[in-house]
Every structure is written in structure tokens, then in C-alpha cells.
């Protein structure tokens, strides 16, 4: 019973980390139709910034998180301007090449600057202690991660469903040309969405660092995982992404607990099955 409970908590926490990091990717892919393989690189950059701020400069965790989010957005802006803009509307292969190229560069530079070792982000005391739920104790950090995921999901839901910007965003996802004709500044929508996506990636990279450790190959190691979440969930769909993250997180964590020597075997098997059955994703729309 204890095992089932720990698996459940870990799976939920892992799924939520995947969600926080991937949701931005899902929204921008749905919006800009860019196959972005470099999304994980931004999560990694966030992790490095937070690690540097909290461990080397000794800043508070919350400050480190803020620095990571805004620092990563700051780094991403010129990348978007100079590189991503060139591949909007280009064939998929071109986008794959450009974003793989960006990923490789980030990995190489990260290693040059920070070295090949694993970087930790010291968490505050309050997150390290176990928390008693009455009948079970769980790690506070896991709860924190789950809460972050839930907050991001709710926040995004509010942002997209209830704000004026959200209306413009949804209109642009549905039909960019029509939205532009109706006076929506799609350029601005794109830029803001990209920034939010990158910021969320960085945020997820920091809070999830205990589950997805920060090291130079991070960007490549989890690239596939994030892409999988988007294509399984259906690009542009928040509930789809959430469902995909929880499903794949559950499968991955359960398999690791029960049949650890199979590695990611069952994860990828699930991916193949789901994509074959739902080629447009769990909640993807017909095109």
C-alpha cells in the first residue's frame, strides 16, 4: 500500500513537472506551428541560472526562481528574433534542423560555462522536511511541485479563457489570418506567448530539478519527452497536455518502480500506441 501511494505521489509530481515545462511548448506549437526541439534547452537554462543564484550566490530560493524565469526570457528574446522568426511557416524539416542546432549550441555552451557535472538547486528548509498527511507522510518538495503544476494549469486556464489576451490567443490559434484581419496583432500575441512559454519552461526546469537533474545533456535527454507530451496531448490543447503528462508520468514512474531494468521501454511503447491510435493527439483537433 505504501508503494502504491509513493508511486501515485511520484507519478503525479513527475507528471506535473512535465506539464509545467511542456505546456508552453504545446501552446506555441499550436499557435505558431513551429516544431520546437529546443524547448528543453530553455528549461535547462532556467535550471542553471537558479543553481548559480541559489548555490553560488547564496540567494533565496524564491529569488533564484524569479531570476531563472526572467533571465531565461531575456536570453530567449534575441534567439526568437534572430532565429525562430526565420523558420515560421517553413517546412517541418527546416524547423527541426534549426531547433536541433540551437539545442546543440546551448548544450555545448552550457558545458563550457558550467562544466559537465550535475548542478543542484538548494531548496529551502521548509521544502526538505517530510509532511504528515495524517495517514501518510510525503516529501514536501513533491507536494510543492504538484501545487506548482496545479497553479500553472489554473493560471493558464484563467489567462486563456478569461482575459482579453486569451481571446486573442485562442483566435490566433484557430485561424491566424482571420485573427489578423480582425485587428489582432498576431506578432504581439506570438511574442508574448513565446515569452510565457519560455518562462514556464524555465520555471518547470527549476522546480523539477530534483526529478529531472540539471546537466548539459538535459536539453537532449528530455527533448523527446517534451515533444511526446505535445504530440500525445495534441498541440495547443491544455487539457490534452495535462492528460498526456499525467498518463505518461504515471506509466513512466510505475514502470521505473516495478520493472526498473526495462528503463523507458514502457514509456515509449505507450507513446507509440497512443500516437498510433490518436494520430492527432488525445485532444487534438481535426485539421
Amino acid at each position: 500500500m505504501q508503494t502504491v501511494f509513493s508511486i501515485g505521489v511520484d507519478a503525479l509530481a513527475y507528471g506535473m513537472v512535465l506539464f509545467v515545462i511542456s505546456i508552453g511548448l504545446s501552446v506555441t506549437m499550436g499557435l505558431m506551428r513551429v516544431v520546437n526541439l529546443a524547448h528543453g534547452a530553455f528549461a535547462m537554462i532556467g535550471g542553471y541560472i537558479a543553481s548559480y543564484a541559489a548555490r553560488d550566490l547564496g540567494l533565496a530560493y524564491a529569488v533564484a526562481v524569479m531570476l531563472a524565469v526572467f533571465g531565461t526570457i531575456l536570453i530567449a528574446i534575441p534567439v526568437e528574433r534572430l532565429l525562430y522568426r526565420r523558420v515560421y511557416g517553413q517546412p517541418e524539416l527546416t524547423q527541426v534542423l534549426m531547433t536541433i542546432g540551437i539545442t546543440f549550441c546551448v548544450i555545448g555552451i552550457a558545458n563550457y560555462v558550467f562544466g559537465p557535472t550535475l548542478k543542484t538547486i538548494p531548496t529551502p528548509e521548509s521544502l526538505r522536511a517530510p509532511v504528515s498527511l495524517g495517514f501518510r507522510t510525503v516529501s514536501a518538495h513533491r507536494l510543492f511541485v504538484i501545487a506548482c503544476g496545479a497553479a500553472v494549469a489554473l493560471g493558464l486556464w484563467y489567462f486563456i479563457e478569461r482575459t482579453a489576451f486569451g481571446v486573442k490567443l485562442r483566435a490566433s490559434v484557430d485561424n491566424a489570418a482571420m485573427a489578423a484581419a480582425l485587428g489582432v496583432k498576431t506578432e504581439v500575441v506570438y511574442a508574448v506567448s513565446f515569452a510565457v512559454a519560455v518562462g514556464l519552461a524555465a520555471f518547470g526546469g527549476v522546480v523539477g530539478a530534483e526529478l529531472l537533474p540539471i546537466e548539459p545533456y538535459y536539453a537532449l535527454r528530455y527533448m523527446v519527452t517534451f515533444l511526446v507530451v505535445v504530440s500525445v496531448g495534441g498541440a495547443g490543447s491544455i487539457p490534452g497536455a495535462l492528460a498526456a503528462c499525467l498518463l505518461l508520468g504515471a506509466i513512466d514512474v510505475t514502470a521505473r518502480y516495478l520493472v526498473p531494468d526495462f528503463g523507458n521501454f514502457f514509456f515509449y511503447l505507450a507513446v507509440i500506441l497512443v500516437v498510433c491510435v490518436f494520430p492527432r493527439g488525445l485532444m487534438g483537433r481535426a485539421q
Partner: peptide, 22 residues
């Protein structure tokens, strides 16, 4: 060939990773 676009690309990656694990 069951999928197109991003899902197709993801399938290609998933297949090679699955074989790697196997």
C-alpha cells in the same frame, strides 16, 4: 505512416528509443 507532421516525427524517435531500451 499512420501519422503526419510532429506525431510522425515523435513516432520515429519513440521507435528508436524503444529498440534501444529493448
Amino acid at each position: 505512416l499512420r501519422a503526419h507532421g510532429l506525431p510522425q516525427l515523435v513516432l520515429s524517435i519513440a521507435i528508436v528509443q524503444l529498440l534501444h531500451e529493448a
